[in-house]
Amino acid sequence: MTAALFSADDISISFGGIRAVDGVSFDVQTGEVFSIIGPNGAGKTTIFNLISRIYQPTSGRLAFGGQDITTIPPHRIAGLGIARTFQNIELFTEATLLQNLLIGCHCRSGTGLISQLCFLPRTRREEIRHREKAEEVIAFLNLQRYRQSLIANLPYGVRKIVELGRALCTEPRLLLLDEPSSGLNVPETEEMGFWIDDIRRDLGVTIIMVEHDMNLVRSVSDRVMALNFGKVLALGTAADVQADPEVIRAYIGNAP
């Protein structure tokens, strides 16, 4: 096994005295699908917000690809190769699907303001490259027929896929999926599982996923981490974690 792609070392954050994440440590290896489960309010999404630097950890260290990212500003995270999706979909709703994907390419653009104002050849070449990238993702996720649709007019299930696509456009090495199945029905959830498998296998992207649907978790993840009240309860294969007495207690309460 090689060095971990991503590692969280003893990270904590408190909000007004409540320790939302409390001394959590874990490593994610290149190419694996790592799931985080836990009851509501366990601190799963908070961990994502810490990784994407929306929150500043009170203590602890985050490292990605051997680099310390604990103090990097949030807009540089995408450029490093970490992309994410959101629990309640945060797409650009008044823009078209294609524009959303192109915004995903933003972190790979490097031409200056003047060049963009006058659309100089440098910007033109870059735009062509971005468009090719976006088309690649559209083809990968079968979104061709929605290319020019406004996001506001798309059904929820499609938006979930679009958000996945937008994250892929940033050319990530690590993808954070926040409840990819929330709001989806059973066949849509299965489809989401196939996409996740494809992304890992065909694109070689490492995935950290927060998820409630245990079927999805079991079918795609290599390792699972269970959280409750901001602390790690168990870490291991899906079967191990599900059998862990602590985890069962957290979900169902004490056996009589």
Partner: peptide, 14 residues
């Protein structure tokens, strides 16, 4: 456009 529609995800798009 991204900033108009969602600052938080604009930020995480770099």
């Amino acid at each position: 456009i991204a900033i108009r529609d969602s600052e938080i995800s604009a930020q995480s798009m770099g």
